[in-house]
């Protein structure tokens, strides 16, 4: 286990180093000057030069790369070019929206997918199974931003149960915060829950076809008990993989939903930063997301071992 950990940790560091170079180079070749963006069309050349110097943009690319990485290693993410506040603070603020939103959506996705998948698998071929398969097919196909707009029309404009968007802030209380995240979380969860339901169902069906289940059934174990006691745990491996992928996606990929609901999350921060050429923010957030994805995969690997003792030995 120890050697395995060290190997994974080294892999993680190499992946981050490669990612940082790629991110930096990508943004370096994209034309666009943050100072020109800030000062607009009437700026004079000397003003632009003054701002570039103030932002530290006048150094060479290599020097700026090492300044950035050096800062990151010390926990200093730098100062945003446009907002002029520390990037770390901005990321933490946005995390307080993005992380709860991702967890909320993932929670909903799991809460829907587990019962629906198990139900469909245990009644394979029945009307219920077909119904679940049909609905999830639709859930995968419907674009979530469109579904989000429909929900806004119904729940915000017509019924007034939820705000049309925006984030109340956790200072307003847990309930107000959750309320403003509910519609976005449902919109995000819909396709995820559909995918997860289908994975849950097919994985459970596969497991139920295994010899040990047949043996258990032959020994007189009821179908229900066979599913709950023997089938479910073994069916969880592919489900966990998908949950891990979904969590990374929800954390990084909620840009469109954040725009539809104008939520101050990480996705919108990156979006705004790209258009305003706030390169340091883009670089830092993207690198952080890369780190998050790698970390989640790592956690999923660990979880495999928990559900399936056989996998522990292989390490």
């Amino acid at each position: 286990m120890g050697r395995f950990l060290i190997r994974r940790l080294l892999g993680l560091i190499v992946a981050l180093a490669v990612a940082s170079v790629v991110i930096f180079l990508c943004l370096e070749v994209v034309p666009g000057d943050p100072a020109a963006y800030m000062l607009g069309v009437n700026a004079r050349p000397d003003t632009l030069a003054a701002l570039r110097a103030e932002l530290g943009l006048d150094g060479s690319a290599v020097q700026r790369y090492f300044d950035w990485i050096g800062g990151m290693l010390r926990g200093d993410f730098g100062i945003s070019y446009t907002y002029r506040t520390p990037v770390s603070g901005m990321i933490v603020d946005r995390m307080w929206v993005s992380l709860p939103l991702a967890l909320y959506a993932l929670g909903l996705s799991v809460a829907i997918a587990f019962p629906a998948g198990i139900w469909a698998a245990s009644r394979r071929g029945s009307a219920a199974d077909l119904g679940v398969m049909g609905v999830t097919q639709l859930g995968v196909a419907v674009p979530n931003f469109w579904f989000a707009m429909l929900m806004v029309l119904l729940f915000a404009i017509k019924l007034r149960w939820f705000p049309s968007g925006g984030f109340a802030g956790w200072d307003e209380g847990l309930f107000a915060g959750l309320k403003s995240l509910t519609l976005p979380a449902i919109a995000l969860a819909l396709p995820q829950a559909s995918i997860l339901t289908r994975v849950m169902r097919s994985s459970l069906l596969d497991t139920l076809g295994e010899d040990y289940i047949r043996t258990a059934r032959a020994k007189g174990v009821s179908r229900r008990r066979a599913i709950w006691a023997h089938g479910l745990r073994n069916a969880l491996i592919p489900v966990l993989t998908i949950i891990g992928l979904q969590f990374s996606f929800l954390l990084a990929g909620a840009i469109i939903i954040e725009n539809v609901f104008y939520l101050p999350g990480l996705g919108r921060l990156v979006f705004q930063a790209i258009s305003s050429r706030d390169l340091i923010v883009v670089e830092s957030v993207v690198l952080l997301l890369v780190f998050a994805v790698i970390a989640v995969n790592f956690a999923v690997d660990m979880a495999y071992g928990l559900v399936d003792p056989r996998l522990r030995g292989r390490r």
Binding site: M149, V152, L153, A156, I157, R160, P163, S164, G165, G166, N259, V260, F261, Y262
Partner: peptide, 13 residues
Amino acid sequence: ISDPTAAFASVMA
């Protein structure tokens, strides 16, 4: 509220 559709929804709601 940067998205035009969201802008519409925010006024209507």
